[in-house]
Amino acid sequence: MKKSTIGILAIAALIFNACKNDETNNVVVNPNDYNVAVSGKIVTVKNLPADTVVGIGAQGPYGAGKYTFFSLGTNSKIASTDSATSNWDLAFAGTTIRINAGTSGPGNGGAFVYTGTFDALTSVPVDSTFRIDQAPTYAITKGSGKGWYNYDGPNNLVTAIPGRVLVIKTATGKYAKVEILNYYKGNTTPLSTATDSVKIYDSRYYSFRYTYQADGTTTF
């Protein structure tokens, strides 16, 4: 049942995408707005806000403390009221990415960070070990240089490390590969010479792309 729903959704997405392609000349997407674009097997999400900064305190910038939940199966944000369900696969807040498993959610998820290119990863490697979230450690390791990003303290910039793929087992046990593209609004990292306020208030906007395998196999 579920499989076919997703299939229909995927087809709908493809049709939608095709239509959109026809209308490219007419539709102007603000490059700073949250948007989802589907092209073949690859879904690209831009400017997904992730607990964006609302103020700066003694411990540095802070947000409202709310995660943004996202479903890889439906290509959409999920309301935070559904946080205790299996409806979401990834949750974002600041540089932390949680998966729907372990201490983070009721789902059957798992994840690990793969080194290599998104395109070259055509299937989940056989010897893979999926980790789950066990707060305070997470399947997608936190910390500069350890998971998906580098933090440059003196320049106050977070950069997604190229050649890192988040291999995800979704809440419902499907597989997906995710590449984080950027952490800043407009899919563009500010220059090191940009002002601190630009670096802070433009941060926590994820751009990423992924391929979701709806049929439950490990090939992408």
Binding site: D119, L181, N182, R209
Partner: peptide, 11 residues
């Protein structure tokens, strides 16, 4: 690795 203009990675 490095990134293309669209942000995607390559060697």
């Amino acid at each position: 690795y490095t990134r293309n203009v669209d942000g995607t990675s390559r060697i």
